[in-house]
């Protein structure tokens, strides 16, 4: 198959998939084409969309690629049809998600330690929205539940993977004074990297 044809196939698959498509899933369809080829054609396709100022673009999101509209055209979409949009997340929800995103897997007590308030209800709401999932129990007394973010979380916030999040700001002044900060900071960095 010629590159142009493969690219057209990829575009077709992107168009109908309805969810983010990973390079591996494309590979399952285009068996004879190797991964690096698929990847580079993805980039090419993405570039072509950009070049011709298309209303659509190809975004890298939730571990794959997806055709998406541009946020600046949202107004037109909403004029065409009523878009059912869920309400924005509350501040407690965002705070809790941020903590979990950077420190996952994490138990409720650790979240509450940072926030300084009870977080049971917030966590339940985020589980219902599938932005969080339970991934097991921590091997400590009481076997508390461990929480982590989901693929839907990445999709919702337009992230390719969790490491796309900006690194937490460092507080150098304090670190000189307090060793414990340095360790918690280091932990959060490894959590992001892993």
């Amino acid at each position: 198959m010629e590159d142009a044809e493969i690219k057209a196939v990829i575009e077709t698959l992107l168009f109908i998939s309805g969810e983010s498509l990973s390079v591996n899933r494309i590979k399952n369809v285009l068996e004879d084409v190797d991964l690096s080829k698929i990847k580079s054609l993805f980039w090419e396709l993405q570039h072509e969309y950009e070049m011709r100022s298309s209303g659509l673009r190809i975004v890298e999101i939730a571990g794959g690629f997806q055709i998406a509209t541009r946020p600046e055209f949202a107004g037109w979409i909403k004029k065409l049809k009523k878009v059912k949009q869920s309400s924005k997340l509350s501040r407690p929800s965002l705070e809790t998600l941020a903590i979990i995103a950077y420190k996952q897997p994490i138990v409720k007590a650790e979240i509450e330690d940072i926030r300084g308030v009870d977080s049971t209800g917030v966590i339940k709401g985020l589980l219902d929205k599938h932005l969080l999932k339970i991934i097991g129990r921590k091997d400590v007394p009481g076997r508390p539940i461990l929480y982590a973010t989901t693929r839907e979380f990445l999709q919702y916030f337009g992230l390719r993977e969790i490491s796309d999040l900006p690194t937490l700001k460092e507080f150098t002044e304090l670190m000189e004074e307090d060793e414990s900060i340095t360790t918690s900071e280091a932990q959060s960095i490894t959590a992001i990297e892993s």
Binding site: A68, E72, L94, L97, F157, P166
Partner: peptide
């Protein structure tokens, strides 16, 4: 970090 997520939410809610 939550504020950053909030900004992302604003943008990505408008992506279809």
């Amino acid at each position: 970090a939550a504020e950053d997520l909030c900004e992302r939410e604003d943008i990505w809610r408008d992506v279809f």
